[in-house]
């Protein structure tokens, strides 16, 4: 049906030089992600979920293997190219919100678009659009510290989708939220996926949350144990 946007081929990631204490965080991972997917990465602690997401975003470098986004190999990019790659293609949602404290809600959301050189008008339109879709209207000029955790994480989602990236990566986006707020956040992400076709991949420990995923990738000891597609 839809095109493949992310292609991960034969990824290995080891930590440490000493053969005795060497950690195989990821071993022989092959994974492809299609546009419009809503995937969850699950597995016990230490199974390699964060490592895989970091490698996909270019924040971490695999020991071997290829990461290809839209036909581009990201392994061989320079620091600046990687910066631009993340800016233009990847949306991030972090576990602990990580909004910029000196910027208002509006400025946090438009930050990436400013880096991209989008016009003020385009940015303003986009900000009110995404604020509506994450359900935080009328708080544009507040600082992050004036919002609750759940609201901050919604702003973080808004920031991640504002510049219309190819994929949104979220490492345990609900870990810092109570289960109700967390469920609501995932529901909201799901709506963004259904209505706007945004591609998400997130890691989680929470059974209720993984139940919402359309595709479930289970990792164990750095290997893909199981893949399950639901409808």
């Amino acid at each position: 049906m839809s095109e493949t946007i992310f292609q991960i081929e034969g990824i290995n990631r080891t930590f440490g030089d000493d053969p005795e204490t060497l950690v195989h965080a990821l071993a022989d991972i092959n994974l492809s992600i299609k546009r419009g997917e809503f995937s969850a990465l699950v597995g016990p602690s230490g199974s390699g979920k964060s490592t895989l997401l970091n490698i996909m975003s270019g924040l971490d470098v695999p020991t071997s293997g290829e990461v290809i986004l839209n036909g581009k190999h990201i392994n061989s990019m320079t620091g600046k190219e990687l910066s631009h790659f993340r800016r233009d293609h990847i949306g991030f949602i972090f576990q602990s919100y990580n909004l910029i404290p000196v910027l208002s809600v509006k400025e946090n959301i438009e930050y990436i678009m400013v880096l991209q050189g989008k016009s003020e008008q385009e940015r303003a339109e986009r900000v009110s659009e995404v604020l509506k879709s994450v359900g935080i209207e009328g708080k544009e000029n507040r600082l992050p510290s004036q919002l609750s955790g759940g609201q901050q994480q919604r702003v973080a989602v808004a920031r991640a989708i504002a510049a219309d990236p190819d994929i949104i990566l979220a490492d345990e986006p609900t870990a810092n939220l109570d289960s109700k707020t967390g469920a609501a956040l995932i529901e909201m992400m799901q709506n963004l996926n259904d209505d706007l076709g945004k591609t998400f991949i997130f890691s989680t420990h929470d059974q209720k949350i993984m139940d919402k995923a359309k595709r479930l990738v289970t990792l164990e000891d750095g290997r893909i144990q199981n893949e399950e597609v639901r409808s």
């Binding site: 975003s57 620091g79 910066s83 631009h84 993340r86 991030f92 910029i100 920031r159």
Partner: peptide, 12 residues
């Protein structure tokens, strides 16, 4: 915070 800025695409 600087790490986040860099992660989301701010150049060095």
């Amino acid at each position: 915070e600087l790490g986040v800025l860099k992660a989301i695409g701010t150049t060095p």
